[in-house]
Every structure is written in structure tokens, then in C-alpha cells.
Design a protein around this nucleic acid. Structure first.
Lengths: 217, 217
DNA sequence: AGGGCAATTCGGAAAATTCCCCGCCTGCCT
DNA sequence: AGGCAGGCGGGGAATTTTCCGAATTGCCCT
């Protein structure tokens, strides 16, 4: 049960210090170095051969992904954990392709950091739960190809489309918007006409295809 | 910061007792009930409305996935975490399609259990790291393989759901399958019942969420 | 062998929704 | 002025959905 030799990389020294403090509370962790740039990180990895590199994804001189790629390619044994401030998880797959073994959100809990460290140590890949959710969302929603004919809807029509996309019935929408059922029906009919569909089912399908409504929340 | 009301479901009483002991060490957790079968679990969920259901994936009378489906469909607010002894993660996607919000391996660390609980509480999806690795493996391998429709529906029901997802009307489906309109309606009604929705729009939305149908082509 | 049960198949009647045609405002643009 | 699009609704016919029930088949269990 050796110590985990960690290299910390972040160009914001304050953030770096904070994370360093966190890491120092963990008994098994030993910080072997800090870097404030991707270039410096690559040098330090060569010099110290850490077990794990914690690296910010967004830095000035060289972005974290590029540095990750270089490090992962040069040292197979070094596990790279990406720190990201994006909760969208938009970069996580890119990060993993670059050879990263973990993807942590900066607002993650301390416990998460510990788990990420031990997970990558034993060869697992660690994703922040919020990111996992995103993965799963993609997996379930299967929105691969990006194409958007983007039909133009009036504000009112779009408002009603959103409610339909939330599963509201015509009656519910009428109540919610304080309109007559007839009016909602009229709007919906116009939406369907513009999207070239003839029933609610295809309205949802077409709207989803065009990205007008979001599914799989 | 209320307590987390948890229902524990496992048909092995010894295992159940062990997990219960674990949960009782967690300050925020309150165990509102135990069940040893899927059927009983469904009843207890109705009675106690827990925040979270911890359920074994493999049980005798009714498998955990079926129970999960029923619970998730009936109570949107109840978060289901699957306990699995398979480290392969083979079932995790099926579990998520069934409405589970978490997938935990039985050999997971205690810290993982706590993380899973708080993750699903705040709406995230939690996957065991080993499972995440599996997901990522699939993702990196550029999987093009098609999905299995998941066993929550009968073959006939699924067949009809696919046609609905393709935008066919009830009448068209009846013609296509050489059935009476009434029959198609009956099937559709049963599908809606199983998915816990009350109209076509929500049927599509829910089916899409569960990955039973593909949108966006 | 018989009972139970899920899956599949329909019907009738009633309720709900949708569809089609129409009128009435209010702006805005030519 | 006139025209036209967006927004709002009514009436009534047409269609669909819902809510009951029910027959058949095949499978599992005792």
C-alpha cells in the first residue's frame, strides 16, 4: 500500500493551492509537484514519474487535453485525471480519447476526489456522477447526427410546443396559459402544419429530430 | 436537510441485514422498510413513498428490473438504485432503461453507497466506477451495435411501440399488421399502462427516455 | 388433468379529442 | 387604406381514445 504520487496542474494558483490543501488531508496522497502550464506539466512528469496527474482542462499556453495526450502517450503508467469546470460533460469523451482515466467536475465533493484517485489507481475509469448522467442521457436519447432544418415558430407556438414536449395535454396547456382549449388546438395545428405532420405523435418525433424540444432529460 | 427515506429490497435476508446495518451508520439515512420480493417492494413503495429504493437485481418471484420498471413508472419521484453482483455491467443499460437512477455493484465500497445515495438524491445518475469503465470502453470502441429493446414489453407490444415510434397512426398499424384497430388500441393501452403514462405524447416521451424507441434517426 | 394466468385478439358505448370552417381583434408593412 | 400574419375563440362533424367486457390460445404449476 504505497503512497499515491500526484502531480497537480492548474494555471490558477489559488485553485491549485486549494486542491493541494485538500490532497494533503488524504493520508495516501503525496504531492510530488505542481505545474501551472501544460508544458511545465510534461516536463515534471518526465522528471518525477507521478502515479497520477490532476490537470485542469482549460489553461493558457496549452490546453489540458493536449498536455494529457502528450503525457498519456509518453508514459503509459501515468494516470491522468481531468479537472473540468463544465458540468455539461461536453469534453469528457474527448478527454477520454486523449487518454485520460478520470473526468472530475471542479464542484465535485471531496469524497469524489478521493474516489477518483483510488479508482484510477486500480485501473478503473472515473466519471463524475453528473457526467455519468450526461453519458447516460446521450446513451438513452441517441442523438447522434446533427442536422437542424430549424423551422421558424412564433413565440407563442414555441411556448406551446415546449409544453407539449413536457407531456402536457391540450387541456392542461389551456389551463396553464389561461387560454381556451380551442386556441391551444389552433396553435398546435399551426405548429403541425409548419412541421409538416398530421398528428401529435409525429409532431413530437419531428420536433425532437429538429432539436426544437429536448428529450431524455 | 431532511432524512433520506430508503426502502431496502433483497431476497437474501442476510445480505439485507448487512446492508441495513451499513445504512444505519449513515446519519442522513432512514430505513422506512424492507422487502424480500419485487411484489412486496411495489406494495411498500405505494405505502411509504420512500425517496430511494435500493433493490437487488436478481430475485426469485420477480426480477429487480421488472419491479424497478413498475416502481419507476408509477412513482416518478422515487429514485431506484440497482444492486448488482455482476461486475460486467451487462445489465446496467437495461437497468437504466427500466428507470433506475443508479447501478451499484455489491462489492462496492461503503463510500460508494453513500455517494450513490446522495447522487441520485440530487437527480444525478450514479454508476459504479467499474461500470463506468465498461461504459467508456463501449464508447471508445465506437459501438455501432444496435440496442436490445429491453424485456419490459411483450414482443407484440414492442412491435407496436416501434411502429408508433415511427410515426404510424393506430389505423396504419392495424392495416400493416392485419389487425383490428381495437386490438392495436388495446396493445397501446397496455404499453401506456406499463410505462405509466396516459396519452400518446407521454408514451413517446417516456419510451424515448427509456431508450425503447429511437428519435432523431 | 385441471386451474390460473399472461398474451393476444376484438366489440360496443361513451367520452374526449381532433378537424374544418368561420369570425373578431391588433399590429405592422406596403 | 388595404392586406396580411399572429393571436384568440366558437360550432359542429368526424375521428380517436377510453372504458367496460370477453373469447381464444398457450404455458406453467400442482
Amino acid at each position: 500500500m504505497d503512497k499515491l504520487r500526484v502531480l497537480l496542474v492548474d494555471d490558477h494558483s489559488l485553485v491549485r493551492a486549494g486542491i493541494r490543501a485538500l490532497l494533503e488531508t488524504m493520508a495516501r496522497v503525496e504531492i510530488v509537484g505542481e505545474a501551472s502550464s501544460g508544458r511545465a506539466a510534461i516536463e515534471l512528469v518526465r522528471a518525477h514519474r507521478p502515479d497520477i496527474v490532476l490537470i485542469d482542462i482549460a489553461m493558457d499556453d496549452m490546453d489540458g487535453l493536449t498536455a494529457t495526450t502528450a503525457i498519456a502517450a509518453e508514459h503509459r503508467a501515468v494516470k491522468v485525471i481531468i479537472l473540468s469546470m463544465h458540468d455539461t460533460g461536453d469534453f469528457f469523451d474527448q478527454a477520454l480519447r486523449c487518454g485520460a482515466r478520470g473526468y472530475l467536475l471542479k464542484d465535485a465533493a471531496v469524497a469524489e476526489l478521493e474516489m477518483a484517485l483510488s479508482a484510477v489507481e486500480r485501473g478503473d475509469v472515473y466519471l463524475s456522477p453528473a457526467v455519468s448522467r450526461h453519458v447516460v442521457g446521450n446513451l438513452l436519447a441517441r442523438r447522434a447526427g446533427e442536422e437542424r432544418p430549424a423551422a421558424v415558430l412564433t413565440p407563442r407556438q414555441n411556448e406551446i410546443l415546449q409544453l407539449i414536449g413536457n407531456g402536457r395535454s391540450t387541456k392542461e396547456i389551456a389551463r396553464e396559459l389561461e387560454l381556451s382549449v380551442k386556441t391551444v388546438e389552433a396553435h398546435r395545428a399551426q405548429i403541425m402544419e409548419r412541421l409538416g405532420v398530421r398528428d401529435i405523435a409525429n409532431l413530437l418525433l419531428e420536433a425532437a429530430r429538429r432539436g426544437l424540444i429536448a428529450l431524455g432529460r
